[in-house]
């Protein structure tokens, strides 16, 4: 096991190289901070010499968290894979285009070369750009503690406000992204995907269309980086419908969606509500004949 490195001011830093080591360190140091890319953790530090007030467990050297594997129906990323490596890896050409487009929209190249996919999911203060995308793709996660393993679709790990919930001493270990399930997609982020902006808004959808019929459609919206909205009943109502929808069908779906949105927004601002409704209209009125980007 690696000896911890003691900072002259406070922080101990552990740099485990294997998952078992990381999990046992975390079990023995329950107050420790998991340090992946550190981009979110450092953005809270104003000191030149950051002081964390608790030991750090660095995940970047953990072998099992750095792997990328392609299976028949999904690609599996270790939680410490950086967003930059996701775009560069040879498996990336099999990833859903909506996911790759969204990864490219996160921050800057320097941020993407540092931030990890696991850290991105685990950030609790903000709902980041990739969470809605992973949700609509039905992506799954694996989460481990020294004694337990939980895995399943990401939505099972979210609370009612769509925040990621980890139990004591759990580490996100893998993220599995299904491939080949959808043949249509759209993604739009304003303004320019700057998630810190007060005025951030993003919408995304994926669908599987067989000739004219929609077999599956998922969509989600991220408002101000605070709220991720999915209206499952609206998605279900569209399954089996023939696209393009008729004007009457669009009106009916809009009416239903709007009534659901009224109940969903924590602090309903008419402007933001209007944005979501407009984004939904855009999804419905696409003729959905080809995959691509809605701007």
């Amino acid at each position: 096991m690696n000896a911890p490195h003691e900072n002259s001011r406070l922080s101990l830093v552990f740099t485990p190289e294997h998952l078992g080591e990381a999990l046992s360190l975390y079990a023995r140091n329950p107050g420790a901070i998991l340090y992946a890319g550190g981009t979110a953790l450092l953005s809270k530090q104003s000191e030149r010499l950051p002081i964390f007030g608790a030991p750090l467990i660095s995940l970047k050297r953990v072998e099992e968290l750095k792997t990328i594997r392609r299976y028949e129906n999904f690609i599996e990323f270790g939680a410490a894979v950086t967003l930059g490596d996701i775009l560069r890896c040879k498996e990336s050409r099999f990833l859903p285009p909506v996911f790759k487009t969204a990864v490219r929209a996160v921050g800057t190249p320097a941020v993407r070369n540092t931030a990890t996919i696991g850290g991105h999911l685990a950030v609790t203060e903000r709902k980041l750009l990739l969470l809605p995308i992973l949700l609509i793709l039905d992506a799954a996660v694996e989460v481990k503690s020294q004694t337990t393993t939980r895995s399943g679709e990401i939505k099972r790990f979210l609370d009612e406000k769509n925040g990621f919930i980890l139990q004591a001493n759990e580490i996100i270990t893998k993220i599995r992204i299904p491939t080949g399930r959808f043949n249509l997609w759209g993604f739009s982020a304003l303004p320019g995907s700057v998630i810190r902006s007060q005025d951030f808004f993003m919408s995304c959808f994926v669908a599987r269309k067989n000739r004219f019929l929609i077999e599956k459609i998922n969509f989600a919206f991220n408002i101000d980086g605070r709220l991720v909205i999915r209206i499952k009943q609206s998605e279900d109502r569209l399954i089996g419908k023939k696209f393009p929808l008729s004007a009457a069908e669009i009106r009916e779906e809009m009416r239903f969606f709007t009534s659901k949105i009224e109940g969903e927004l924590i602090a309903p601002s008419p402007y933001k509500k209007e944005r979501i409704i407009n984004a939904f209209r855009l999804i419905l009125t696409q003729d959905l004949t080809k995959s691509g980007l809605i701007e």
Partner: peptide
Amino acid sequence: IVSSCSIL
């Protein structure tokens, strides 16, 4: 490329 202020 990385921002060296964000690497420890």
